[in-house]
Every structure is written in C-alpha cells, then in structure tokens.
Design a protein around this nucleic acid. Structure first.
Lengths: 195, 195, 195, 195
DNA sequence: GATGAATGAGCGTTCATTCAT
DNA sequence: CATGAATGAACGCTCATTCAT
C-alpha cells in the first residue's frame, strides 16, 4: 500500500462514517478501524479530528468542482449556464450520496458556518463561477434584483432538499425530474415577465 | 413551581442550549442547571436524552403551528394562501431564532431523518394544510405537476436557507425582502404561463 | 462514607501514589482505584489533575504547619527557635515520609517552581516564621549576612537531603543524630566567632 | 558524521530536552528530531528510553569530574580541598545549567534513587575523592563525627539549592557569594571549636 | 417526588517502540 | 545500518444515566 493509499483509506473511511453517523457517530478509533490502520496513524496525516474534518471538506470540494464544471461553457446564455451548473450539482449529489451527506454534516456545524462566513466575507476564494453567473444574471436583468445570498438560497436551497430526499429514498429522481427541478429553480430566480 | 412549570423549564433550557451549542454542546447536567432542577429530575419527564430531543421537537411544532396558521383563510386563492404560509413561516423563524436553530439541528440528525421518514411514509400526522395547499395547487393546475416532495423542496428549501442566512447575519431581511423572497418561491412552484 | 471522607480518600490515594511513583506514575484511574471511587468522581472534587496536585500540596501544608509550630515560642533566642523549627521539620518528614516525598515531587516540578517563584516574588503569603527568624538572625548579627535565599539553602538543603536519605534507608536518624544534624545546619548559617 | 558523532548528537539533544522539559516533556521522536537522526536510530545506541536516561547521566558524570578535579591537590589541607571541590562543583552547575537541571531531574526520579542506592551500597564505583576527603576530615577531627551520608548532605545540600535558585533567577551568585556560600557549607561540617 | 453525587464506558490524543524498506 | 511510518496501549477527561438519600 503506497503512502497516499493510506491517507486515502483514512479519508474514505472518515467520509463514510461521518456521512452516515455524523461527527459524533464517527470516533477516531472507528475511523481507524474502518480504514484498516492503527488509531495513532490518523494523526500522522491529520493534526487532530477538527483538521481531518476540514481537510475532508477540502478534498471533497476538489473532487467535486472539476466534475461540475465539466462541459461548462462560460459564453452560453445565462439560463443555459444555470441549468448546466444546477443539473451537474444535483447529479453529482445523487451519484455521490456520501459526499452529499458529508457536505450537509459539514455545513450544519460550526466548521461549516465558519467556512461560510469566511467565504461570504471574502476571506476565502471559492469557485467564482456561481458568483459570476448570478452577477451576470442580475446585470442582464435576467434574474431578480435580490441580494446574492437570497438568489443562492432560491437556486440551491431546493436543490439540496431534493438531493437529500432522493438519497433518503423519499423521491426517486430520474433525468426528467432532475431537469424539471432545475428549471423550477430557474423560475424562482429569473425575473418574471409580465403577461 | 407547578409540575408543568418544571417540565417547561427543562424544555426551555434544553432548547436554548441545543440551539446554541448543538446536541453535544448541551450535556444533561448543563440543561438541568439552566432549568434550575436536579440532573435526575429530567429523567422523570423524559426517559432519556433522545426522547427529550424528540419531545422538544414536538413541543416546538405545537407552538409554531398556531402562530403560522393565525389568519390563514383556507378559502383564499392558492397563491395568497401560499404567500401567507411562506411569509408566516419565514417570519416565525426570524423572530424565533432559537426555535429555528433547534429545528435545523434536529432535521440534520438521525432524529430528524427518522421523523421525516415516518411523516412521509404516513406513520405520523403532520399538519395537512401544506399538503392540502399543494394538492389543491396541482389539481387546479396552478402549480407544476411535480411530486409533492419536490414542490416542498422548491417552496421551503430557499426559505430555510434564507432564514439561516438572516440569523447568521449574512443578510438582513426586512418586510420587503421577505415578501419578494416568498414571491420568488412561488415563482418556483407555480406553473409558468407561456408568453 | 461522608462526603468529606470521599475527598479524603482521593487525597490520600493520590498522595501515596504520587509520593511513591511520581506524577506520571500515578494515573487518574489508578488514583481512583486506590481511593475506591470511580474515575469520574475525582473530577467532582478537583477540576483536573493539575488542580488536584496543587490542592494536595495546599492540604499538606495545612497539615504540616501546626505540627511544626507546635510549641514554638517566638520569644526564645534565635538559635533555640531555629533548632526548634529545624528539628520539628525534620521529624515531621521522617514521621510522614509520604508527605515528604510528595513535597519533593512537587518542588521538583513546574508546579513547585511556579509556586516558589510566586512566594519569593511576594505574590503568596507563606508562613512567615521562617522569614522572620532569619531576618531576626541577620539583624542581631547572629547569622551570616547573606541573601535570605542562600540562608534558606544552608539551613534546609541539608535537612531535605538527610530526610530523603533516612526515608530511603541510607541512614537511620535517631534523636541524637537529628539534634546533631540540625545543630550542624545552625553552624552553617550562624556567624562564626573568631577564635 | 562518524558513528560516535551520532551518539553524541543524541546525547546532546536528549540532555537539552530533558533538562528543559523533564522526562515526559522529551519524547523520543523529539529527541531524534533535535539530534537530526531517525527515531529508530536512537534504539541502535540505547536499548530503550530508560537506558538512554541512565547513560546520559553517566556521560554527564564523566564530563563533569575532570572539570571539578582540575587543579585539585590531594595534599592540600582538608579545608582547602573542600573549598576547592565545593566551589568547582557550584561553578560547574552555574556554568552548565543544562547539566545541572538534568542532574536534578535524574536524582528526583526512580532512576536517581536506584542509582544512589547502588552507589551507597557499594555496587558502583563513584569518584572517591569526596569520600576520601570526608574520611580524612573525620579522622583528622576537622569534621564533625557524623555518618558520611549526613556530612554529604550538609556539604552538598545547600550547594544544590543555591545552584537551583541561581539558575531560576531567585538569586545571582557572583564570585564573592560563591566563596561565602561554600565557606558556610564548611562551617556546617567542620567541628566547631569551643570558644 | 426531587436531588445531585457517583459512576464508568467511551472519547480524542500521545508516544515508546517496532520493523519493512 | 539507518530510517520514519505505523502501531496500540495508555492517558486525562466528559457526560448520560442511576440511585441512595
């Protein structure tokens, strides 16, 4: 087993246990066990549990972004770009339920809140595609003129709910439902034409 | 202090501590302390911590519903009914941040998932106003013909996100923003007219 | 067992184990075991191990002082007062070897150094009998005109060594040897008359 | 780096870390790091940590003795020989605070007690200069007729205390104070003439 | 019924030691 | 030989729960 395999095993085990049981349902010893390493070994790769949790998140982001941005064309119309990103995100969550549940655990925790705060207050560089897209949308008067934070909520709030419900088995999303859901999200953020 | 006052104190203390610090940031001893009762006393009212957590949720729901339904007229048009409920819900969250944060903690935990599963699979009686509203909306062809679960996500997903962001201080919702946000949610679920 | 008995048991057990094995040779679990209490119980009486160690020291001082000062007459001549204190101290150590070994462990540790620093820098009120005695001795020109710290070393350095050697069995101190040793300490600090 | 350099580096690193942080504040990995060797390498030179600690002590003794004995003339009068040794020792401690603090750590630990026991019970060869000096002093009736162990305590007890206080900054020893301190030690052990 | 002292399993973490490379 | 990644027993400490008072 190469050195990176060991780190990889720890990451996989931690992700799975935390995704399934939450942070407190995933003791370090259990993670070590599942990863097939000694308890102390984790600490060679991660300073402590908090660091492990944050690193796990960063790893996840790095795995996720390229997948979501695959095929993304910044010169397409706003609507198409939104549909692309929304669909890609939702698909990613559905196809990687552990990643999704981990993200939820993370965001609903002091780690996540802190991270979010840093991001919104501009301390951290996130992926800007989303911001750019929404800023474009607003300036082109395609989207409602609402604070960015609210547009994000309108666009991604349903998406997260729907992903969770799919993963928990409360609904089964097929390609059509995915498309229609993302289109509905678009309806939520787009400036409504007067008929 | 009457017997119910004691229970009330425990509930209040637990709600506050859990809302602020999460489930593991609220040890039973600390709850007892804050409630002004002995640690063992909690166990007279709640079999164990898990039960306390679930009961807390039920209490919260019971406190919440009448407030949300206050002024609700089942014979108004679908759109108005939706706007009423959405606005009432969002306002409630903003005005009762502890309740909101508790709800989030609860939903993002095994308790919440279990509870949700029971509800959706019909084991539990929730308030049916929401269901009725959406079923009406669909049958009147006012709303998109999507699974109820997805409509719920479209309607309430953004609402929860926005409430959280307000409570965390990432955005400040005034009356106008609240109205516009709920209207945007309506745009998400309503069947779009072809122009 | 009364409430104070329990604290007393913990103190006794901790003192004995630390005296015999040092701080690291006395895990909390072992102390609890020896005291006949649960591991968590110690933490009801002492915030953590550090606090336990310092409290143990304070307890010990409080037990020790009255014994040493018993029969002490501040109006006796300096020499007699010194002999009284020195003898009493040495006797106490010999008769309470656990106390003595604990004191040694304490003084030879960051706790002790800190404590000593505070005392010397005047932050803490110790028993002043010793200071008074030495200051008297200097001003009466009975003792050598050396810094107090050095006089203390001359007076008590040998005393501690001798007590340790007795306890470890390297010498057996009887009344006569005790007297002669303390007298020798007095020779060390007293201003030598020119013959 | 020759093989002995490596051992030397380990010894130096261990001495420094243990002197500054105590035995438990000096993990093997940290020692290895500071010595610039692999953690496993230490075990090529020292069977385990305990052995390292004892070897360290022996090394230290071997470094110390020649320095202390430098200029020592066995044919000088007893008093002068004592003053020489005492002064040399005190100076050595002051000039080599790491060595001194290591010695203190060592003596105040099971290792030190064991070592001392072996020495006193004759299992180990120490330097005999001290013994010879004191035996001479007794037989010449220059020194008090006390057990050797007690004479040692009277002579070196204050010396260690004073060295520690200097190193901790509680007193600053200059040449004059050193001389006067050692002379005071001599007063403690010398047979007092009747005036 | 109410209490809160007592419990001990379980947590996150450290570190002396080993052994494959 | 030298290495340093890996180990796992052992540590200090927390907290849900119990039960004598």
């Amino acid at each position: 087993m190469s050195i990176n395999d060991k780190r990889e095993e720890i990451v996989r085990a931690a992700l799975e246990l935390i995704a399934e049981n939450g942070f407190h349902g995933a003791p370090m010893a259990m993670i070590a066990d599942k990863a097939g390493v000694g308890a102390g070994t984790i600490y060679r790769y991660f300073e402590n549990k908090d660091v492990l949790i944050v690193e796990l998140y960063k790893d996840l982001e790095e795995r996720m972004y390229p997948v979501i941005l695959d095929g993304y064309a910044p010169d397409e119309p706003t609507r198409e770009r939104f549909l692309h990103l929304g669909t890609a995100l939702l698909r990613y969550f559905i196809e990687n339920p552990l990643d999704f549940r981990y993200l939820e655990q993370f965001h609903n925790s002091p780690y996540g809140v802190e991270h979010r705060r840093d991001k919104i207050l501009g301390k951290k560089e996130g992926i800007n595609v989303f911001c750019e897209l929404f800023e474009d949308g607003i300036s082109q008067q395609m989207m409602k003129d609402l604070p960015l934070v609210i547009l994000f909520a309108l666009a991604f709030g349903p998406l997260l709910s729907v992903a969770r419900d799919h993963i928990l088995g409360f609904v089964i999303l097929d390609d059509l439902l995915i498309t229609r859901t993302i289109e509905a999200c678009w309806d939520g953020i787009k400036r409504q034409s007067v008929c």
